[in-house]
Design a binder for these strands. Sequence first.
DNA 1: TTTATTTGGTTTATATTATAAACATGTTTA
DNA 2: TAAACATGTTTATAATATAAACCAAATAAA
Lengths: 95, 95
Amino acid sequence: MYSKLDPLLHSQLRLAIISLLINIGEAEFVYIREKTNATGGNLSVQIDKLSNAGYITVHKSFKGKKPQTLCKITRKGIAAFEKYVNDLKGYIDID
Amino acid sequence: MYSKLDPLLHSQLRLAIISLLINIGEAEFVYIREKTNATGGNLSVQIDKLSNAGYITVHKSFKGKKPQTLCKITRKGIAAFEKYVNDLKGYIDID
DNA sequence: TTTATTTGGTTTATATTATAAACATGTTTA
DNA sequence: TAAACATGTTTATAATATAAACCAAATAAA
């Protein structure tokens, strides 16, 4: 009960990013920004953190002439999310 | 989906405090400190915040000669917790 | 064509939060 | 009576989240 919650996931925006990627596997920067209603700056920072932690991978390329940042969830990211959800149950399951 | 999470509850320690109080209705400072493994200082600060928000009430008295701080959940606190849990489901329910 | 706007981000600055360390006020114990 | 303990609070610092400002390139408007 009340186990430590992964601080990387216990953040509204980072949790939303991972949740989104868990569901759809991979997504572009702009798509994530729209779905999460985050500002670009905030999103950029949080994607960096998730990437540095190995929870996602980031591939930068060009789509036509526009830069494109594609984010993909990793196995490590999936495992971390599952653990986080499980730990959270110790807080929110009431009986 | 991805609704704003109440910042007052989206904090590991404050969530643990509220979760504890939801389950047992009221508890003493020392008891909460033990159950949550928080430092006294941190706990003191977070109890203040929850109290200022009207999520809990705090009654100070003496148990014998020792000061005693009793925390009680309020209806507002219960409602906030329930909303938080519900909002969180938008993040962690995978389908 | 040159000015303004948009797109896709990054960097930097600021506000908020969490946390620990130090302190205050007594009480108990050696 | 001095040292250690209990119950907190206050204050200082570190970490985090977030927004604002910025950059570079492309496109649209004048």
